[in-house]
């Protein structure tokens, strides 16, 4: 099995497990009035590790799976999650994805975008839903919980995907600065 195919398989499995885990376990665990949401965290992690394109495709697929499984309006989750995956991939190009702050604050931003984006689209679609201040509290709790889970989730996703990644970002960066194979050194 080629490395690329293996990565696709791992990513697909990761998506399925994430959605199943989210809807059968995590969504039922209410902590301080809110629930953690693994889906944006995993999409973020995939975007950070695999790049913008893979992140976007993964986000779209996971969103589709989620919408289908939960009988949501198709397309909403896909649109939001592909955006998260894509932006995460772009962040990866600009920032060091190994830094602890990127997954941490990325989780906060992704969760906020996910929750608020979903609400905005629902309103745009003229869905009548009762809105109360509790929603704001739940959003904040979810964001905090996701920030707590961000680093462990990122580490798990990374350990799952790294064997299939064409080049581990860390190894690639280390090689770029310390070995003679570095393009920077070759350019001198």
């Amino acid at each position: 099995m080629s490395e690329n195919r293996q990565l696709q398989l791992r990513v697909a499995l990761l998506g399925v497990v994430t959605v199943i885990l989210q809807i059968t376990l995590v969504s039922q665990l209410r902590i301080a009035g809110g629930i953690a949401d693994l889906v944006p965290l995993v999409v973020l992690a995939v975007g950070l590790l695999c790049g913008a394109l893979s992140g976007a495709v993964f986000g779209f697929a996971v969103g589709f799976f989620l919408d289908v499984a939960l009988f949501h309006t198709l397309g909403i989750s896909s649109l939001l999650l592909l955006t998260i995956g894509y932006v995460a991939g772009r962040v990866r190009d600009a920032r060091d994805p190994e830094g602890a702050f990127v997954p941490l604050f990325g989780a906060a931003a992704a969760t906020l975008a996910w929750v608020l984006g979903y609400a905005i689209i629902q309103f745009l679609l003229d869905v009548e839903a009762p809105v109360s201040g509790v929603i704001l509290r739940q959003t904040l709790v979810t964001m905090l919980l996701n920030m707590l889970l961000a680093l462990p989730v990122y580490a798990l996703v990374r350990s799952w995907l790294v064997p299939a990644l064409p080049a581990d970002p860390r190894r690639r960066r280390r090689r770029a600065t310390t070995t003679s194979l570095s393009p920077l050194q070759r350019a001198r």
Binding site: L53, G75, L79, L82
Partner: peptide, 22 residues
């Protein structure tokens, strides 16, 4: 270009899905 094309395709797919489903 490839990345943007795929992204555009995905976004359009989402919008089509959304519109069709709605």
């Amino acid at each position: 270009r490839r990345r943007r094309a795929v992204l555009g395709l995905l976004v359009v797919s989402c919008l089509i899905l959304l519109t069709a489903y709605f």
